[in-house]
Simulated scan of single mutants.
Amino acid sequence: MKKVGTAVILCGGKSSRMGFDKSKIEIKGKYLIELIAEKLETVFDEVILVAEKKDKFKTLKYTVLEDLKKEYGPAGGMHTALKYANSKYVFFMACDMPIVNIEYIKYMMKIAEEDNCQCVLPQNGKWIEPMYAFYSKDLIEEFEKGIDNNNLLLYDIIKNSKIHYIPEEVTRTYSEDLEMFVNLNYVKDLEILKKLY
């Protein structure tokens, strides 16, 4: 399969609930983000890490971007990645989301390309999953406006754009229990990694 497009792992966050930097979680001598990146590489020809400091992951082979606008949370990291990415559509996930569902990502990518939308967002009940989604470079200006106005809620930034929502029932055909949306927030959540690796 031809690999196309850009995937981004956001490696910021305070990790206050976990008590240590989640982006440095290690499994068998590798960072979790490396294992995530390796899976994303099977689909994408460009995998980028966004961190608060460019030298944070200097031992890794991946491009590491430093936030252009610091202290703006995920919105700042996404703005940075969208400006840098080589492809129109960028897939985003967070460094504490250990499950990469390749078939679902390919499904979302196809929607983005065929629907010519600006964002592909999975629905989860009444909520959306903004950290497992595709965004278009067309949204750079919207992110800049949100940051300039200190309105950093991702949905507020993109709500007026052309969004393709994926119904929860469709997502469940790819992942019955929606496990790919799991976050590692607390130390007890690390048990998930024992099952995966």
Rank of each mutant, 00 (worst) to 15 (best):
V4Y: 09
V4G: 03
V4S: 08
V4W: 01
T6S: 05
A7P: 09
A7N: 11
L10C: 08
G12L: 01
G13R: 08
G13E: 08
K14W: 01
K14R: 15
K14L: 09
R17D: 03
R17M: 05
M18V: 02
G19C: 06
F20Q: 03
F20W: 06
K22S: 15
K24F: 07
K24Q: 12
K24E: 02
I25A: 03
E26I: 02
E26H: 12
I27Q: 05
K28P: 01
G29W: 01
Y31P: 11
I33V: 15
I36Y: 00
E41G: 12
T42V: 06
V50L: 09
V50N: 11
A51D: 13
E52I: 09
D55Y: 15
T59I: 01
K61S: 10
K61A: 09
Y62C: 06
L65A: 02
L65D: 10
D67K: 14
L68G: 00
L68N: 12
K69M: 04
K69F: 08
Y72P: 00
G73Y: 11
G73F: 07
G73M: 04
P74T: 07
P74W: 04
A75N: 10
G76N: 11
G76C: 08
G77I: 07
H79W: 05
H79P: 00
L82D: 09
K83V: 12
K83S: 10
Y84M: 00
Y89V: 06
V90A: 00
V90W: 04
V90N: 06
F91H: 11
F92R: 11
M93Y: 04
M93D: 06
A94V: 07
D96H: 02
M97R: 15
Y104K: 02
I105N: 09
K106Q: 07
M108N: 00
M108R: 07
E113K: 11
E114Y: 08
D115S: 14
N116I: 03
C117W: 05
Q118F: 08
Q118A: 06
C119M: 14
P122E: 05
N124E: 11
G125P: 02
E129Y: 00
Y132H: 06
A133M: 12
S136M: 09
S136F: 10
S136C: 12
K137G: 04
L139T: 06
I140R: 10
I140N: 11
F143C: 07
G146R: 05
D148A: 13
N150Y: 13
N151W: 07
L153R: 15
L153M: 15
D156A: 12
K159I: 10
K159T: 13
N160M: 04
N160T: 13
S161G: 10
S161A: 14
Y165V: 09
I166F: 05
P167H: 03
P167Y: 06
E168N: 06
E169V: 12
T173G: 01
T173Y: 04
S175G: 09
L178A: 00
M180E: 06
V182F: 15
V182R: 03
V182L: 07
N183D: 03
N183H: 13
N185R: 13
Y186W: 12
V187M: 06
K188F: 02
L190T: 10
E191W: 00
I192Y: 01
L193I: 13
K195A: 00
K195G: 01
Y197N: 13
